[in-house]
């Protein structure tokens, strides 16, 4: 079933603040096999000029998909069983570091058909609770056969 084009431009409510912890950064870095001391050791991070340990570039995937509520709306018509990840991008103003309290607002920016597949792109603007923009993520998922 084709996705409902009326969803283009629709935005989520701001997420509850996500508190970035040293422990979570360490867990994520360990899971991707990365022992860079700037992820694991506050002193090493501070020596590199950061306020605390920073997170790997792909870390915001842990908390930025607050667009999930939009994607799960039955009016959109997305069949999750047929979904694969198409594209992903992270655009940074500054690195995410331990101690950040981050809020995501997700907006559907595009829905299009390519062959028999439906593509939907969600942009998430990630800010601190004080309103500083930290990064913007772009997530494109593909519903296989959705346009057929």
């Amino acid at each position: 079933m084709a996705l409902n084009r009326d969803f283009v431009g629709r935005a989520s409510a701001p997420s509850a603040p996500y508190e970035v912890s040293r422990v979570k950064i360490k867990e994520f870095a360990t899971a991707i096999g990365d022992n860079n001391p700037i992820y694991h050791d506050r002193e090493a991070a501070q020596a590199a000029g950061h306020p605390d340990v920073i997170a790997p570039p792909t870390f915001p995937i842990v908390f930025s998909l607050s667009g999930g509520a939009i994607l799960a709306d039955p009016e959109l018509g997305l069949n999750f069983a047929m979904v694969v990840h198409g594209e992903q991008r992270f655009e940074y103003r500054r690195p995410v570091h331990a101690g950040d309290e981050l809020v995501s607002v997700s907006t559907v920016t595009d829905i299009r058909s390519v062959g028999r597949n439906e593509f939907i792109t969600v942009r998430s603007d990630v800010t601190t609770v004080e309103g500083e923009l930290v990064c913007t993520t772009y997530n494109t998922i593909v519903e296989r056969g959705g346009a057929g």
């Binding site: 990365d34 860079n36 700037i38 992820y39 590199a48 000029g49 950061h50 920073i54 790997p56 570039p57 792909t58 694969v84 990840h85 198409g86 594209e87 992903q88 991008r89 992270f90 655009e91 940074y92 500054r94 690195p95 772009y138």
Partner: peptide, 17 residues
């Protein structure tokens, strides 16, 4: 990030799967 030394030096990163 291993090439750059400091992972904070990566300011934009995108891929297609």
């Amino acid at each position: 990030t291993d090439w750059a030394g400091d992972p904070g030096a990566v300011v934009d990163y995108g891929v297609r799967f």
